[in-house]
């Protein structure tokens, strides 16, 4: 019961600062992704855009969605969900990438 009570609150001290900082980084990354979109990197253009998108999602997940403060179970859950998507993409492209 005692342990349960602790789990009601996700973090002990809520502060505004960290979120504003994360927001600034997100805006900056959006700027970067728009800026580099004009440059032709050839094949890695998509990779760059996706990498930035992944970093941005990571920030949203970790901070805005409080994943950082959640228990290990939650992190494992997110891992399982992402693994499922990853497997699906990889196996799907085992068909499309080869003749």
């Amino acid at each position: 019961m005692n342990e349960d009570h602790l789990q009601h609150t996700i973090e002990h001290k809520p502060t505004y600062g960290i979120y504003i900082l994360v927001w600034l980084v997100l805006l900056m990354l959006t700027g970067v992704t728009v800026a580099v979109a004009g440059i032709n990197f050839g094949n890695i253009t998509v990779a760059t855009a996706l990498t930035i998108a992944i970093v941005k999602s990571y920030l949203v997940l970790t901070f805005f969605m409080h994943l950082k403060a959640e228990t290990a179970t939650f992190k494992l859950f997110v891992g399982v969900a992402l693994l499922f998507l990853l497997i699906s993409i990889a196996l799907l492209f085992s068909d499309y990438s080869f003749l």
């Binding site: 992704t33 979109a37 855009a49 930035i52 998108a53 949203v60 997940l61 805005f64 969605m65």
Partner: peptide, 24 residues
């Protein structure tokens, strides 16, 4: 908090939609 989590997921989906449609 639940509404917030939902809202952030909508944001994450847009984070991927944006480069894949507008920046290619």
């Amino acid at each position: 908090e639940a509404a917030g989590l939902y809202w952030h997921l909508v944001d994450i989906i847009w984070i991927f939609l944006f480069p894949l449609f507008y920046l290619i």
